[in-house]
Design a protein around this nucleic acid. Structure first.
Length: 592
RNA sequence: GCCGGUGUAGCUCAGUGGUAGAGCGGCGGUUUCGUAAACCGUAGGUCAAGGGUUCAACUCCCUUCAUCGGCUCCA
């Protein structure tokens, strides 16, 4: 059994880098200055906590009237004054009683002090007239906060618990100099431009409708094309890796979900049942019970194992309205799901194969940076201790045999089994949760799964859930943001747009289109009565990789003039050369 | 779900207690053009929905819906 306590270590930390340590100090100090300013402007405010974060800082306040954007400006100018006053940050250590007394009109601080472990020295940091319970560290003086900006206001529950009071949180960011702040603000607006919700609309990929309902997506033709390409590649790859595709329905009877236990432990995320012929049916939140039924459709022999059943299965889960977000968090989505049924001796090898498949699949889409986390047995769990140990070790060995760096989330596994989660890092260095590989000791037991082993005995198989994209919707959302909408050629819904210079080139344009289409290129003729320049601009904004311009000379020479979306003009080339070039990029899945 | 913001034409947005505007897009026409926006004309809106206040509401108030920023980075 893995020891949760000793093996635990925290994910790769920013604390190593001196600039990050400095920023942390600056930001934490800025948070103090902000609390100082807020208390000066709103003396009756109660202060919560004010930590530095990955990109900035925040502070939580209880105020009778929520802050307005104008308040933010006022607070910001007062902060500037405080910073300019060049107050030094002073640390004071004090006894618990003294601390309680000092903060006796700050109930949240009192709560924090009461919860501090007795071994920790209680300290405060002060600058000017403001003093805050804090273990530091801070910069020397307020003037070391060289550049900051308040960003937004949000509600936040005290300690993140929705049973607690809702406080008003002000977010801001701070840097060691103006340039770094400017750079950060530029990055923020860059991220905004890449927002998949904006691009999804601009590129006409998908849409959502009030009439349909929140968290439910319809794919417009271009998005559907992209999705179909992704799914086709996924299917082909899975076939090559010995997965058997299956299909399952969207609803199933109540007793199925009772047996699986979902009605018990997953009820909150399931939609209300519908009654059909006096039977209750539920919309599926997961595919596993159906795949289990496929498994159970015949008595399995050990010779059939591992049995790997795969499906792009659409599931529906209730998500609280406030957490829905574009394609990233929705109520109806498609998992690239598979369930592996195997013998104990096969698990390590199978986990390894899933890892290999994962990296093969994700790298094809240009994701090369991963962070891997292994989650071990939580306090409350089902399944034999030996199974946990065997599985956890096999997960660990599979990762280590591939020399992959990983972290361990001690006790972070599901109650039914240990798991590996893999996040991908996108072009803006943001992490996205995709892949999960999970053991399940619960369902084989509940559904009484067996196989006939080589002694003729009936034995319970191991079962592994795994999804590599996680959700197709979210994965496409990530793809959109990663590429800023300029997809690699193999994924581009429209790979080439044909732009005739004038109407008299339309026939030749159609000929070229025909040839390209025959060669498998997704292309269209822009036959609108518009000038070439306008068509090019349009194609640029649609981020179409190839713009094929043609006029008299191309028609005469049977060539095409090719412009790439980065502005490069390849000049006139034979159609065949273009086709070869595109096909090469498609078959290599070249990232452009 | 909760706190706050937003909702005006297909899209992006302006607007006022006296019943609505631009640009782009669409459509019609003129132009036939050489690598990021030709020109002219024209149609299109119960100002998210419902209720209330008012002589009068897109504007003020309430409710609902949708959407955006957040809601365990822990002194």
């Amino acid at each position: 059994m893995l020891d949760n306590n000793t093996l635990e270590f925290s994910p790769l930390d920013s604390d190593e880098d001196p600039i990050d340590i400095l920023r942390q100090k600056i930001r934490h100090s800025a948070a103090h200055v902000m609390a100082d300013a807020v208390l000066q402007l709103f003396p009756e405010a109660k202060i919560g906590i004010g930590p530095a974060t990955k990109d900035g800082f925040y502070y939580d306040f209880e105020v009778s009237v929520p802050f307005t954007p104008e308040d933010l400006e006022t607070i910001e100018s007062l902060m500037k004054k405080i910073i300019a006053s060049n107050h030094s940050f002073e640390r004071t250590e004090l006894a618990k009683n003294a601390a309680l007394e000092k903060f006796d009109n700050q109930p949240y601080k009192i709560e924090l002090i009461d919860n501090l472990s007795p071994e920790v020295a209680i300290s405060t940091f002060s600058h000017g007239t403001f003093e805050d319970l804090c273990q530091g560290p801070h910069v020397h003086s307020t003037k070391d906060i060289k550049a900051f900006k308040l960003l937004n206001i949000a509600g936040a529950y005290w300690r993140g618990n929705e049973n607690n009071t809702m406080l008003q949180r002000i977010y801001g960011t701070a840097f060691e100099n103006k340039e770094a702040l400017e750079q950060h603000l530029t990055n923020l607006s860059e991220a905004e431009k890449r927002d998949h919700r904006t691009l999804g609309k601009a590129l006409d990929l998908y849409s959502t409708h009030e009439e349909i309902g929140p968290g439910l997506t319809v794919w417009n033709p271009k998005g559907a094309r992209l999705r179909a390409i992704i799914e086709q590649y996924w299917r082909d790859l899975h076939t090559n890796h010995d997965y058997e595709p299956v299909y399952s329905p969207h609803i199933g009877k109540a007793n199925l979900w009772e047996t699986s236990g979902h009605l018990g432990f997953y009820n909150e995320n399931m939609y209300a049942p519908m009654e059909i012929d006096e039977q209750q049916y539920y919309l599926k939140p997961m595919n596993c019970p159906f795949h289990i039924m496929v498994y159970k459709s015949s008595l399995r022999s050990y010779r059939e194992l591992p049995l790997k059943l795969s499906e792009l299965g659409t599931v529906y889960r209730y998500e609280r309205s406030g957490v829905l977000h574009g394609l990233m968090r929705v109520r109806g989505f498609t998992q690239d799901d598979a369930h592996i049924f195997c013998t104990p001796s096969q698990i390590e090898d199978e986990i390894g194969k899933v890892l290999d498949l994962t990296f093969e699949l994700l790298s094809a889409f240009g994701f090369m940076d991963y962070s891997i986390a292994l989650s071990t047995k939580p306090e409350k769990s089902v399944g034999e201790v030996e199974m946990w140990e065997h599985s956890t070790n096999s997960l660990k060995r599979a990762i280590e045999s591939r020399n992959l760096p990983y972290t361990i989330d001690g006790g972070g596994g599901a109650f039914y089994g240990p798991k590996i989660d893999i996040n991908i890092k996108d072009a803006l260095d943001r992490d996205w949760q995709c892949t999960t590989i999970q053991f399940d000791f619960n369902l084989p037991e509940r559904f009484k799964l067996v196989y006939q082993d080589d002694n003729g005995d009936r034995t319970q198989p191991y079962m592994i859930h795994r999804a590599i994209f996680g959700s197709i919707e979210r994965f496409i959302g990530v793809l959109i943001e990663h590429y800023g909408g300029a997809f690699p050629v193999w994924l581009s819904p429209v790979q080439a747009i044909i732009i005739p210079i004038s109407d008299r080139h339309l026939d030749y344009a159609e000929t070229v289109k025909h040839e390209l289409t025959l060669a498998g290129v997704r292309t269209n003729v822009d036959s609108r009565r518009d000038r070439m320049n306008a068509k090019i601009r349009d194609a640029q904004m649609q981020k179409i990789p190839y713009m094929i311009v043609m006029g008299d000379s191309e028609e005469a020479d049977k060539t095409v003039s090719v412009r790439l979306r980065d502005g490069t003009n390849l000049g006139p080339i034979p159609i065949e050369n273009l086709v070869n070039r595109i096909n090469l990029e498609v078959s290599h899945k070249t990232i452009t």
